[in-house]
């Protein structure tokens, strides 16, 4: 910036004018163009992979596209089919809601308990934090298969319980329509809750010790401490993770696909499974795009609820 200015005095008016013009041109390049050159490569890749196909999914959702060849425009027919004809869509949507209910309660409760029992201890705190986090770094295929063997009705934990004479354990949890979805949620949660716990723990460690002292002087017991000090103290993390859980519950795929592919008889089908099956097995890419669009719609609704509540003055 300084260079052209210091040279000014030794220049003739004409040359000064030129220098100023080229400096201005340089400034335009340096301030407006160059920063975008640094951003351009990764932005172009992201637009090609994410934005472009996402927008074209909007168009294909209005067609009968098979994935190969031409796509005929059929208006809102795919959405009519979703709303009125496709019973598998309804049951998949209900399964997403069940999944949402399970994940808004079980892992959050487990993580809150875990974090609040680790938080006050000194000895072994790091060890426990690490050990409980370990399942989160494992690949889904390994976790899924490990638990498939552990829950095997003949040889796994269930088989062992049956051998011990525990009644009602002689069942294939993943093979029955009424147990399959909670069982997959249990397996997914085994890998997930430790991550949540570490987030909550980080939040709890930022709460001032003085607040707990004050609560104790007021005669609060541990439950009251937890309710009145801990929960408000980690509220930002808690609310954010409730939001993310709600979003992810509509997108869940890996564990269900790996363990049952939506079976038995569609009992564990969720929307993402329908997208996959319609696109890559039934070759109804247009219809699959329409389902994918409805998934984004639900995510959009959740984010909007969050924003509206925040505007209304909820401290979230």
């Amino acid at each position: 910036m300084g260079k052209p200015m210091t040279m000014e005095k030794s220049m003739s008016t004409e040359r000064l004018h030129d220098a100023r013009a080229s400096w201005r041109k340089g400034a335009f390049f340096r301030k407006k163009v160059l920063p975008w050159l640094f951003v351009a490569p990764i932005l172009l890749i992201n637009i090609t992979v994410v934005l472009g196909p996402a927008l074209s999914a909007g168009y294909y959702s209005l067609t009968d596209w098979s994935g190969i060849g031409a796509a005929n425009f059929i208006g809102l027919d795919n959405f009519r089919r979703i709303l009125l004809e496709d019973s598998s869509y309804k049951s998949a949507f209900v399964n997403n809601l069940i999944w949402l209910g399970l994940f808004l309660t079980v892992p959050i409760a487990m993580a809150l308990v875990g974090a609040s029992v680790i938080s006050p201890i000194r000895r072994g705190a790091l060890f426990f934090r690490l050990a409980l986090f370990v399942p989160y770094v494992l690949p889904s295929v390994i976790v899924a298969n490990l638990w498939r063997t552990l829950l095997d009705p003949d040889r796994g934990i269930m088989g062992w319980l049956t051998d011990q004479g525990v009644p009602g354990t002689d069942i294939a949890l993943l093979g029955r329509q009424n147990t399959v979805l909670p069982t997959i949620a249990f397996i997914d949660n085994w890998h997930w809750w430790g991550f949540l716990m570490v987030l909550f723990l980080a939040g709890m460690q930022n709460i001032s010790r003085d607040l707990y002292e004050a609560a104790r002087l007021d005669g609060a017991n541990r439950w009251e401490e937890f309710r009145d000090v801990t929960i408000p103290g980690i509220r930002p993390v808690l609310v954010f993770m409730v939001l993310m859980t709600a979003i992810w519950s509509f997108l869940t795929f890996d564990y269900i696909w790996i363990l049952t592919q939506g079976g038995p008889a569609g009992a564990s089908e969720v929307l993402s499974v329908l997208v996959y099956k319609n696109a890559f097995q039934a070759f109804q890419a247009g219809y699959a795009s329409a389902i994918g669009l409805t998934m984004s719609f639900f995510v959009g609704i959740i984010i909007s609820i969050f924003i509206v509540l925040r505007r209304r003055g909820w401290e979230i």
């Binding site: 472009g52 196909p53 509509f250 997208v275 696109a279 890559f280 984010i303």
Partner: peptide
């Protein structure tokens, strides 16, 4: 740009997966 990245990162993979695959 930050807003775009935020939106792009919260789009479901299943939304762009199908057109992306055939593309």
């Amino acid at each position: 740009l930050m807003l775009y990245l935020l939106v792009a990162s919260s789009l479901p993979i299943h939304l762009f997966l199908v057109p992306l695959f055939f593309f």
